[in-house]
């Protein structure tokens, strides 16, 4: 068995440390060791996107990374999306207003992917939103509410900049 290793990274603004077997998946470390259970697991092979986080500011699958690989990184999960005073991120707000979630299981991954999408493309067309969101599977909503929400959030984020 491989030696446990130390890992330390910044997550949602705070530095967290731990010791882990090298094979532990980043998503398991985030959920089980750090207790941040907002990031979900839906497939563990990179397709469903439920585990999507921002890794150094860019959306990535946390089920396809080892916790040890996050050493020194900066991570944002769904728990870090709202402002410290609890004000929802424009995407969260828009998801709420556009009924973009039902069971809410895909929602954290969907939000993180949408965050990244709007960062690289602040004014996406509907087609571009659909293409961008195809990175995350949702079985409840038929996606329409999500597409509408991302469009609305993009508008709001642009006008507040």
């Amino acid at each position: 068995m491989a030696e446990p290793r130390k890992v330390s990274f910044k997550i949602n603004g705070a530095v967290r440390e731990g010791t882990t077997e090298p094979r532990k998946l980043l998503v398991d470390f985030i959920r089980d060791d750090l207790g941040l259970t907002g990031t979900h697991i839906g497939c563990e092979h990179g397709i469903c996107g439920a585990c999507t986080i921002l890794f150094n500011g860019e959306a990535a699958r946390s089920c396809l990374m080892l916790a040890v690989q996050a050493d020194g990184a900066e991570i944002t999960t769904v728990e870090g999306l709202a402002a410290p005073d609890g004000t929802l991120h424009p995407l969260q707000q828009a998801f709420w207003e556009h009924h973009a979630l039902q069971c809410g299981f895909c929602t954290p991954g969907m939000l993180m992917a949408a965050c990244d999408l709007l960062r690289v493309n602040p004014s996406p067309t509907e087609e571009e939103i659909r293409t961008g969101l195809s990175a995350v599977l949702c079985r409840c909503t038929g996606y329409q509410g999500i597409v509408d929400a991302v469009k609305a959030a993009a508008d709001r984020m642009r006008s507040s900049n």
Partner: peptide
């Protein structure tokens, strides 16, 4: 190639 979040890594 995959999706933006898979192209990140």
């Amino acid at each position: 190639v995959g999706h933006l979040p898979t192209r990140t890594r």
